[in-house]
Amino acid sequence: MTERIVVVGAALFDGDHLLAARRSAPPALAGRWELPGGKVERGETPEAALTRELQEELGVDAEPMTRVPGEWPLKPPYVLQVWTARLLPGSPTPKPLQDHDELRWLTQDELWDVNWLDQDVEAIHALTNL
């Protein structure tokens, strides 16, 4: 069996607004938008990884809520899984600390105003079907 490495993405909501993060690195992805998150480390649950990644990348305290059905292939051996998440009360405002240079809170009507990474497009479609 080939190794699979899970990358978790957060569909982070503040009320009815979804947070989108614009990549600043690597160069091939720079300027495209994604759901923030990152790799699940060995021995870590996806939910714990999501909490850690949001702290590292955005400086926020967030709580994973529900896994979005499905998973989306990235560059092998990586796969993307997405969870809905919410900011915890008292959490700082998100800031682009690592890998991102801009953040936007999008309403339902603005979801497609940004140039999402290909795999995130599929995840956003799954999310809107929830």
Rank of each mutant, 00 (worst) to 15 (best):
M1I: 07
E3C: 03
R4I: 10
A10Q: 01
L12P: 01
L12W: 01
F13Y: 05
F13H: 02
D14Q: 11
D16Y: 11
H17M: 11
A20D: 00
A20R: 06
A20T: 00
A21C: 08
R22D: 09
R22S: 13
S24E: 13
S24W: 12
P27G: 02
L29I: 01
A30Q: 14
R32Y: 14
E34W: 07
E34F: 08
G38Y: 03
G38M: 06
T45C: 04
T45S: 15
P46R: 15
E47F: 14
A48P: 02
E53C: 03
G59W: 03
D61N: 05
A62Y: 04
P69H: 12
G70Y: 08
P73M: 03
P73I: 09
P76E: 04
V79N: 03
V82Q: 00
T84P: 07
R86I: 09
P89K: 06
T93L: 13
K95M: 15
Q98T: 13
D99R: 13
H100T: 12
L103C: 05
D109V: 10
L111C: 03
W112M: 02
D113I: 00
V114W: 12
W116L: 05
L117E: 15
D118E: 10
Q119A: 14
V121G: 11
I124D: 12
T128N: 11
T128K: 12
